[in-house]
Amino acid sequence: MEIKKEINGEQAVISLNGWLDTKSAPDFEARLASLPVDVTSLTLDLAELEYISSAGLRQVVAAHKKMNGNLTIINVSDEIKELFRMAGFDKKLNIQ
């Protein structure tokens, strides 16, 4: 799992690459926690994300809550999109 983080003032972009599973979720959680407090808007770039388990999904929800809803998810593959749909995320998240 590779996590890239770009912070631009209040804007932050996190790119996820690989498998976000039970093992790598804590890593993602730590990255989220380390975001500066002045970041109010987060974009998750999932172009390289191959796999996400419920542990990863939980962190997505956590990020959504932390940004007070200002979470945008971009470049989602159909596979991941379907998972989001299964989990009922498609209705709550801003998926582009």
């Binding site: 419920s54 939980r58 962190q59 929800v61 809550k65 009922g88 995320f89 209705k91 709550k92």
Partner: peptide, 8 residues
Amino acid sequence: DFEDFDKG
């Protein structure tokens, strides 16, 4: 609820 999904 969706909001509680971060608890699993």
